[in-house]
Design a protein around this nucleic acid. Structure first.
Lengths: 344, 344
DNA sequence: ATTCGGATTCAAAGCGCTTTGGATGCCGCA
DNA sequence: TGCGGCATCCAAAGCGCTTTGAATCCGAAT
C-alpha cells in the first residue's frame, strides 16, 4: 500500500494524507484520525527512498569501519559501539549504514556516501594523528562526529573521547604507589590518536614521580591476545623484568595473564596488570570483583551519546560542534598488588 | 552534479547518459567514452535514492541483529560475520543496513524494512528452533538467508551452517579416545538451534561409546567468560568432577581456563578443554600451536558466502534456495591431553 | 529514386513521496 | 449584502533517476 492508494481509499488527496501523517497543523482533527486509523489498518509505511528523495534527507547515518589491511582485523569494540549508536538512531527514526573497508579505500567510501546521497552524516572511527579524513569530510561537506580525537586537526569538530591521558596517568601512579618501579606499557599502534595519549599519560606518570622512561618496557602493536602474551613472555624472561604491566586492551591483558601463568608466576602478586576496559557486553571484566584492575569506560554509552551528538549537529548545523570528554573509572580488581620486592 | 546537469554539459539527453553509464548497448562507443570521461571529471555518481526509486531495487541488504534483552549483549561473532558479508556486498555494489534490536521488536523491524522498501533482502542471525521469523519473512515476501538452520521449519530456505553436530561428536570422541569419561558440556542457550545440535553431537558421542549422559555435567547459558569460569569452578570442586570440558565458545573457554588455574590445576594435564572457535579476527586461538584444541570454522568466511548466496537468490528468485554445510576442522592444541587417572 | 532496417538519440512518463500555491467553503463583521 | 479571514483541502510540480515509445539519420537494398 502506497500513499496514492491510501489516499484513494480515503477519498482524500495525497497532500492531505501526507500532512495528516506527518503531523502538520492544517488538517482537521477528525480527518487526521481517520487517516491514521486507515494507515494502521492497511499497514501503510512511507517508502523511505521516495521520502528521502523528496525531502533531501537520507535519514541514515553511515559508519565507515576501517579494517587493518594487514590482518583484516576488525576492532573488537566495534560491535558494542554500534549497539549503542543503534539505540540512538532507533529512537530518532534514523537507520544505520555500515561500510567495512580496508583503510586504503576509505576516502573513496566517504566520497561515495556523499555524492550518492546515501547518508546525512557519518561517524568517524579510530581517528589517527593529523587524520586526513576530517579534512576530506569538511571539503565535501559531509557532517561527521569523531569517536576519539584527531590531534593536529585545528578547526573545531564534534567529538567524544575518553580522557586517555588522565586514565593512564592515574593507572601509572596507582602502580607506583604500590611500589612498582618497572612498569611496562603494552599499547596499541601509535599512529592511533588514543595510543599516543595513553603513552603520554604513562610517561607523565612516571616522570612525575622521578622514574625514568625505559623504551625497553614499551611495545606498540595491534592489540591482540597474542601481542599481550608474547610481549609479556619476552619481557618477564628478560633482564630487568617489569613487575607491572599497563595494557591497552582486555584482550591483550588476557594474553599477559597467559604468559604470567605459563611462567608459574601469580597475577596480582608477582606481577601486576592494569588494563583499559571498554566494558564490552560480551567481555565483562568479572562480575563482582573485577578480574583485572582497569581503567574503565563504556564504549557502548559512547556510541549512544556520539550518535545523538551527530544527529543534533545535523539538525542544527549552525551551532558550535559539541565535544565531550569521558573520565575513565579506575576500578580496582584482583590483578594488582604491592610490588614483589620493594628493594628493587 | 546530477544526471540532468551532466547531460546538459554534454549536450546529450539524460536517457543517453544514463544508458552510457549503465552499459546499455544502444549507445555509440565514442559517445560512451565521452560520457564516462565527463562523469569521472565531474565526480558524478548517481543518487542511490532516486535510482532505487526508479528501479524498485534498494541495492541494500539488511542485517537484523538480535540483542538479548536481558544483558543487552551482542553476539561477539557479529563483527566478523559482518566483515565477511561486507566484502561480498562491496564487490557486488550493495550496501549494508544494520538494525540492532531487542528480540521483542524483531518482527516489527522486518515489517518495516519490507514496507518502507529499505532493503532487498535480509540475513537472519541466530536462528532458534521453530523460528517464527522465517514464517514472517515468507508471509511478507522479503527474501532472506539464514546463518545457521531453524529446525522445524519445513519449507526449503537458503541457509549456511556449520555441522555443529558432527563437530561436537568428533570432539567428544577425541576426548574419549584420550581416556576421558567425565566430560562436561558448556553450551549456549538451548533455544538456539546450534546449541541443540551441539548437544546432540555430544550426547551421541558419549552414547556411541557406551558412556552415560550425566545432566550434572551439562550447562547452558549465555556464552560469556563468566559462565565458563563459574561453571568450571563449580564442577571441578564438586564430587565426580569432570576431567574434560567441551565448550561452545572461546570466551567461555577462557573462563574455564581461569577457573582451572585458580584451582592450581594444569590445563591440558589435569583438565582438558576443547572449545568451538569461530576464528574471530581479534581473537586468534594462538599463532603457531593453538592455545585450545578446537573445532574451528571461520565465521567471516561464512558471512561472505552467505551474503553471496542471498544476493544470488535475490537476483534469481526462481531457483531452488541454496544450502551449504561447513565441516569444522578439529585443531589439536595445548589444552587437551590424556585423562589424568585412567582408573577413574 | 525510394524504401527499409539498424544504429543512435531523445522526450516524456513514472517511481512514491513532499510541498508550493492555490482553491473552496464558511463564518463573522461592516 | 459583500468581503476579509480562517480552516481545510487539493492539483500539480519536483526530487534524480530509469525506461518506454518514438524520432532521426544514414547507408544498403530494391
Amino acid at each position: 500500500m502506497n500513499l496514492k492508494e491510501l489516499s484513494q481509499t480515503l477519498g482524500l488527496s495525497q497532500t492531505t494524507v501526507s500532512r495528516a501523517l506527518n503531523g502538520y497543523p492544517e488538517v482537521n482533527a477528525e480527518t487526521r484520525e481517520r487517516v491514521e486509523l486507515a494507515a494502521r489498518q492497511h499497514n501503510y509505511r512511507p517508502n523511505t527512498r521516495a521520502k528521502s528523495l523528496a525531502t533531501g534527507r537520507a535519514m541514515t547515518i553511515g559508519h565507515v569501519i576501517p579494517m587493518a589491511t594487514k590482518h583484516e582485523m576488525v576492532n573488537p569494540i566495534f560491535a558494542d559501539f554500534i549497539a549503542g549508536a543503534s539505540t540512538a538512531y532507533h529512537a530518532r527514526g534514523y537507520e544505520m549504514l555500515i561500510s567495512m573497508v580496508s583503510d586504503s579505500d576509505e576516502s573513496q567510501t566517504y566520497r561515495n556516501l556523499k555524492s550518492r546521497g546515501s547518508v546525512d552524516g557519518v561517524i568517524v572511527h579510530a581517528p589517527k594523528m593529523n587524520d586526513a579524513r576530517l579534512d576530506l569530510l569538511n571539503e565535501i561537506g559531509l557532517p561527521y562526529a569523531v569517536h576519539g580525537r584527531a590531534t593536529g586537526h585545528t578547526a573545531p569538530y564534534c567529538w567524544l573521547d575518553v580522557n586517555n591521558r588522565s586514565a593512564f596517568h592515574r593507572a601509572t601512579e596507582f602502580l607506583i604507589d604500590l611500589g612498582h618501579r618497572r612498569i611496562a606499557l603494552l599499547n596499541g599502534f601509535e599512529i592511533m590518536d588514543f595510543a599516543v595519549r595513553r603513552r603520554r599519560g604513562y610517561e607523565d606518570g612516571l616522570r612525575g614521580r622521578g622514574i625514568e622512561v625505559d623504551p625497553n618496557l614499551m611495545r606498540s602493536d595491534e592489540m591482540t591476545e597474542g601481542f599481550g602474551y608474547k610481549s609479556a613472555l619476552d619481557m618477564l624472561q628478560g633482564e630487568n623484568a617489569p613487575t607491572a604491566f599497563l595494557v591497552s586492551s582486555m584482550l591483550s591483558a588476557i594474553g599477559v595473564r597467559r604468559a604470567i601463568e605459563e611462567l608459574n608466576l601469580v597475577l596480582g602478586q608477582d606481577v601486576s596488570v592494569i588494563t583499559h576496559d571498554d566494558a564490552l557486553s560480551y567481555f565483562q571484566n568479572g562480575e563482582d570483583v573485577p578480574i583485572f584492575t582497569a581503567t574503565r569506560s563504556s564504549v557502548r554509552v559512547a556510541g549512544e551519546q556520539l550518535a545523538n551528538m551527530l544527529l543534533d549537529r545535523i539538525n542544527n548545523p549552525l551551532s558550535a560542534p559539541e565535544q565531550r570528554l569521558f573520565e575513565a573509572e579506575l576500578m580496582v580488581g584482583r590483578s594488582t598488588g604491592p610490588a614483589p620486592d620493594r628493594a628493587n
